[in-house]
Amino acid sequence: LVRYRTISKIPQITLNFVDLKGDPFLASPTSDREIIAPKIKERTHNVTEKVTQVLSLGADVLPEYKLQAPRIHRWTILHYSPFKAVWDWLILLLVIYTAVFTPYSAAFLLKETEEGPPATECGYACQPLAVVDLIVDIMFIVDILINFRTTYVNANEEVVSHPGRIAVHYFKGWFLIDMVAAIPFDLLIFGSGSEELIGLLKTARLLRLVRVARKLDRYSEYGAAVLFLLMCTFALIAHWLACIWYAIGNMEQPHMDSRIGWLHNLGDQIGKPYNSSGLGGPSIKDKYVTALYFTFSSLTSVGFGNVSPNTNSEKIFSICVMLIGSLMYASIFGNVSAIIQRLYSGTARYHTQMLRVREFIRFHQIPNPLRQRLEEYFQHAWSYTNGIDMNAVLKGFPECLQADICLHLNRSLLQHCKPFRGATKGCLRALAMKFKTTHAPPGDTLVHAGDLLTALYFISRGSIEILRGDVVVAILGKNDIFGEPLNLYARPGKSNGDVRALTYCDLHKIHR
């Protein structure tokens, strides 16, 4: 019993810090008490220290592992850092350059016999395009090294910054494609005289377009951006097909006994025919423009016929181009109408809503002055909100995010209106959640004399007048207030005048 009563005193000691020596009952000389009392004092002292730490809000209350900052290894790049964003855009520009100039170089340097010394005699450094290609190869190699040090988000939505895990993730992902696209074939085969082989191998750079397509997928929600990307894709495919079309004609031209190829026909049409040795002929500019003209006309199913396939190889390629053109029509131009419709969806919704308003007016036989006010209010409210119901949009977000959005939407009023000066951010967040926005066209009466005042109004834009009878008592403008002081009276009061809008007004109100 003594032991039980001794232990039962522990909660009292913990909360009230009572010393055991003052209790005459606990001072009985028993061996059990002498053993338990020192333990009680020690526990009391420890609990006292913990309570003191909690009340003082000291940093040592938290466990040590929670006080440590997340460790980022040296030379690790955050995937959302500004440097990584700028670097990704730079790589994107280099990939676009590669997609345009690599097929052009591979096709127009394929057994090209233009006048001038061969590239091997001039030297590697004197070729501007080769120098640019070398810079692109170096940048792609540097990009691989950067990807080995860039964080990523795993399946659990955690940012991984450990170098080993980053390397394994990159090896399992895009490393092989990036490595093949970054191989400097110019340096590996330079001086061997195989410019045709170098041009063909350099087309491996186009593998990076797969990554670019995935990154550009984030802009699919913007109709104008999608339309622009589709047109660029169409032009890029036409450019690639033009390079292939020229390569076919250029390879067949020296081996044909009869002059029936499209390059021969082009030379005869523009007065620059090929001679018996295969030299001469149109310039590279004429060849490229004509090839691009043929691919565009074939892809769009126009086909004027002034550039036509004559050999079997050219006919087979033309059939493939027609098939590609039909697929592009289905996948690209078939979506253009939907994209344009999405661009004008706001206008369509406006006309639909206006039609419903006019049908309501016609069905209920609203008189002319009231009908005009109804239409003007709808037009003004639509121009202010673009038909978007803010309350319906915010309803799907958590309250903390709703408060931040409301604070942002009402920031101008909260910053410049005098009653809100000096208020804490928590108070402003709470008030912003209570605001209701209303609009009024010129001549609209917001409050009639004798109406119950259940709200306090803040003028965000425009001006109003307060009338008693036919006498203008006051004219209020931006950041002015009218209405009933909230919670100042037990019952809502009545208006002693009319409140009429002089201009288009936007008002925020808080109800009782």
Rank of each mutant, 00 (worst) to 15 (best):
E64K: 12
K66N: 11
Q68K: 15
Q68S: 07
A69H: 06
I72R: 13
Y80I: 11
F83V: 08
F83E: 09
W89E: 01
V100C: 01
P103W: 01
S105G: 01
L109A: 06
L110Q: 15
K111I: 03
E115A: 13
G116P: 13
P118C: 04
T120D: 01
A125C: 01
P128W: 09
V131R: 01
V132T: 03
L134M: 08
D137N: 04
D137I: 01
I141L: 07
D143Y: 01
I146G: 01
V160F: 01
V168P: 01
G173C: 05
I177D: 01
I177E: 01
V180T: 13
A182I: 06
G193P: 12
E196Q: 15
E196G: 15
I198P: 10
K202H: 03
T203K: 01
T203S: 05
T203R: 01
V210K: 13
R211K: 07
R214W: 04
Y219V: 13
E221Y: 05
A225S: 06
V226R: 11
F228Q: 01
L230V: 08
L230G: 04
T233G: 14
H239I: 01
H239W: 01
I244E: 01
W245S: 01
Y246W: 01
Y246D: 01
Y246R: 01
I248V: 01
N250F: 04
D257S: 11
R259W: 01
I260A: 03
H264W: 04
H264R: 06
L266E: 01
K272A: 01
G280K: 01
P282T: 01
S283C: 01
Y288E: 01
V289L: 01
T300V: 01
S301R: 07
S301D: 01
G303Q: 01
N306Y: 01
V321F: 03
M322H: 01
L327K: 01
L327D: 01
S331Q: 01
I332W: 04
V336K: 01
A338R: 04
Q341E: 06
T347D: 10
R358A: 04
R358D: 01
R362N: 07
F363Y: 08
H364W: 05
Q365L: 03
P369Y: 01
R373E: 03
H380G: 08
H380C: 10
W382A: 04
W382H: 04
N386P: 01
M390K: 06
P398C: 03
L401T: 03
L414Y: 10
C417M: 13
F420L: 08
R421T: 13
R421F: 06
R429Y: 03
K436Y: 11
T438R: 08
A440P: 07
G443W: 01
G443I: 01
V447W: 04
A449Q: 10
